[in-house]
């Protein structure tokens, strides 16, 4: 079972959190901090698995993570999940985000936390993998956004606002984080394979 999905940036700022097991607010933050501490210390040329922590659920607990440009995607899972399977699931998740946001970047996650949740809802439900087929996920998400358009006639407005925000120069976020490095296409996969 997937216990938690954490996305934080290179400075440890949480960008997206989803816990499938309840933890009090401060424990959640503690988990994010310690996970960041563990993960950020590791080079890019070491393995993507971490074990031996005791943050969630004691010893039956491992961290599987991937680092994309400015973001870490960390899945905390128990022993009933396959390491390599989850590793590719992260890839599918990120590729899906990339498709849905057209070249996803950190800002997309910040401004569309809710939408990221809906995408994840189609892939993981209650900690169990529901769908691993990217096109299927996108179909579901698109069906929902169609609904969005039909229900709220001016749904273009928020999208405009977001794209306006994207181009704003936020002090903490270097401009170059945009897109380029984040969109990991299939060729890059050979690195992991």
């Amino acid at each position: 079972m997937i216990k938690a999905i954490l996305v934080f940036n290179n400075h440890g700022k949480p960008r997206f959190l989803r816990f499938y097991q309840h933890f009090p607010e401060d424990t959640q933050q503690q988990i994010v901090r310690e996970t960041f501490h563990l993960v950020s210390k590791r080079d890019d040329n070491v393995c993507n698995f971490l074990e031996g922590g005791s943050l969630i659920g004691g010893s039956d607990y491992k961290l599987i993570y991937r680092h994309y440009a400015t973001l870490y995607f960390v899945f905390c899972v128990d022993s009933s999940e396959s390491e390599l399977g989850i590793l590719d699931l992260i890839q599918v998740f990120v590729e899906t985000l990339d498709k849905c946001f057209e070249n996803v970047c950190e800002l997309d996650l910040i401004f569309n936390v809710d939408k990221v949740h809906y995408i994840l809802h189609e892939m993981v439900m209650g900690g169990m993998v529901l769908e691993t087929n990217m096109s299927e996920v996108i179909t579901q998400v698109e069906a929902q956004s169609k609904l969005e358009k039909s229900e709220a006639g001016f749904s273009a407005a928020p999208a405009r606002a977001v794209s306006a925000m994207k181009n704003m120069n936020l002090p903490d976020l270097p401009r170059n984080i945009n897109i380029g490095d984040l969109n990991i296409k299939v060729p890059n996969l050979s690195h992991f394979a």
Binding site: F111, F154, A157, P158, A161, V162, M168, L170, P171, D172
Partner: peptide
């Protein structure tokens, strides 16, 4: 939506001031 202090840019403001 249209005014600069609109709801969605309120989130934007928040995020910007936090960063």
């Amino acid at each position: 939506q249209d005014s600069p202090s609109g709801a969605s840019s309120k989130l934007g403001n928040l995020i910007r001031s936090i960063t």
